[in-house]
Design a protein around this nucleic acid. Sequence first.
DNA 1: CTAATTTAGTTGTCATAGCAACTATTAACG
DNA 2: CGTTAATAGTTGCTATGACAACTAAATTAG
Lengths: 186, 186
Amino acid sequence: MTTKLVANTTIVKLSGYLIIQRYLKGSDSMTAPSSHRSMPNQLNLARFLPYRLSILSNKVSGIIAQTYKDKFALSITEWRIMAVLGEHSGISADEISVKTQIEKSILSRAISKLLNRHLIVRTIAEDDRRRSEIRLSDTGQTVYQEIVPLSYAYEEKLLSCLSSQERHQFSELIDRLAAHAESMQP
Amino acid sequence: MTTKLVANTTIVKLSGYLIIQRYLKGSDSMTAPSSHRSMPNQLNLARFLPYRLSILSNKVSGIIAQTYKDKFALSITEWRIMAVLGEHSGISADEISVKTQIEKSILSRAISKLLNRHLIVRTIAEDDRRRSEIRLSDTGQTVYQEIVPLSYAYEEKLLSCLSSQERHQFSELIDRLAAHAESMQP
DNA sequence: CTAATTTAGTTGTCATAGCAACTATTAACG
DNA sequence: CGTTAATAGTTGCTATGACAACTAAATTAG
């Protein structure tokens, strides 16, 4: 499948592509993205942006999740649902799905749980009996009101390693990337 | 549980904390982080950084995942394992776990799958018979060599909406935040 | 040199995510 | 109008992730 050419070079044929590979680690290349110092036919995972983004996001979410979980036994998904309900009382499951990007089946089950715990209340919409209108219960409101400052405090602490200008920059770059990634989807 | 004080103010006692809440939406506050325009006792989920980070990361990972999955039936986890093996041939499961942040039980099962598909090869370490030494098989190498340019191309396309300077800025901020988040963990 | 501790990796269990199939209600069309 | 299509939400199935308990090998200590 691979053919040795010279000391440090090999040709690989794959799905119609001919790929010439250099095996000498550290040899630089014209085709490598400038942000990566390694050779183009080897991936530097630790510098691969999607990977780093995922690691950071998991770490950040994980730390908050711990707070929600320890104190209120809420999962991130459950908290997010309550968070949008705190802003938009009386919206439907479908609207929550749009706002939170939570898939509707996951949403449906999470809502069931929150209903069982009486943290939210659900009524059927008058005008369209398929839709439901969901709001925080009194207990839900109270929990919400306690979590909000915790969340802000956490965000604040996390961002404390950035200057005000850097925060804005970071925030803007995230928005731009998110919009661009959105446009790249099938 | 809550006591109405004046028109738009309420006191809530929760877990020993006394919280004075303002219910008028849009009223500003001294304690709200500058990056949020909403009041401090309501959370603007769409502007909450951990949330946006998670959305972005999921979107980005999801798009790549599709490529890996369609063409090679590899999950992100499986691809990450192969990615580190492409860089560090012959390392142990434990070392992979450190490098990829994948939990060892998940790793163990993912490795089993990759072994079944003959994408990787495992031998027992001579000097320590608990450890195993894992490397890409010939097939694995070939798959790896085909995925690497795809991954770079994707990263490049994703980042094409940022200037070179912005990329570096973004990259640096991610590193800083990741390090800081790390230090915040229990 | 044996007993206790640490380390590498596997397996069991449970919760959650993602996808597709399904029900019920409403809207659209001919 | 009555049939068909679209929408809101639920449920089933499977894969994956997190956590703890477990096995086997190696290291440490008495």
